[in-house]
Nucleic acid binder design. Structure first.
Length: 120
DNA sequence: TGCATGACTCGAA
DNA sequence: GTTCGAGCCATGC
């Protein structure tokens, strides 16, 4: 394991980098069309930050007006708990997303980020 | 400044 | 199928 975590970005200008990271992540999230879903890890990679899945979650929590329900855990599993999990499932089903048991049918509904994902 | 935390991920057992 | 451990990183206190 230990994915492609090799991108050792310098610590300098970390604040600027953090802002850029949030913008890229938000952009990636907004790219997910209605009826499609993606995962935290996929969004992070699509935004250009492999391994930053937790930051995707942070952006979703703090972000406003984002289609948060379209972001799931690995394998298409809902990682939320309680009300949020129920609401997320209802919202996705309303958009036409198909569930297989407790997971989303990723074969049908996974949105794949292309290279253009972070081309702006 | 430093440490703990979190809507994570993935391979191995 | 579940559990565990290790790794990444921004954020809050």
């Amino acid at each position: 394991m230990r994915r492609e975590r090799g991108s050792v970005r310098t610590k300098s200008a970390s604040q600027d980098r953090a802002t850029d990271m949030r913008m890229q992540i938000e952009r990636a999230i907004r790219m997910i069309p209605r009826g499609k879903v993606s995962t935290y890890g996929a969004v992070a990679r699509g935004a250009g930050f492999p391994g930053a899945a937790r930051q995707v979650a942070a952006v979703l929590r703090r972000g406003f007006g984002l289609p948060w329900q379209r972001v799931l855990g690995s394998g298409g599993e809902i990682k939320l708990t309680g009300d949020s999990a129920i609401e997320q499932r209802l919202r996705l089903e309303a958009e036409g997303v198909r569930f297989r048991g407790r997971k989303v049918d990723m074969k049908l509904c996974e949105f794949k980020f292309g290279r253009s994902a972070r081309q702006n």
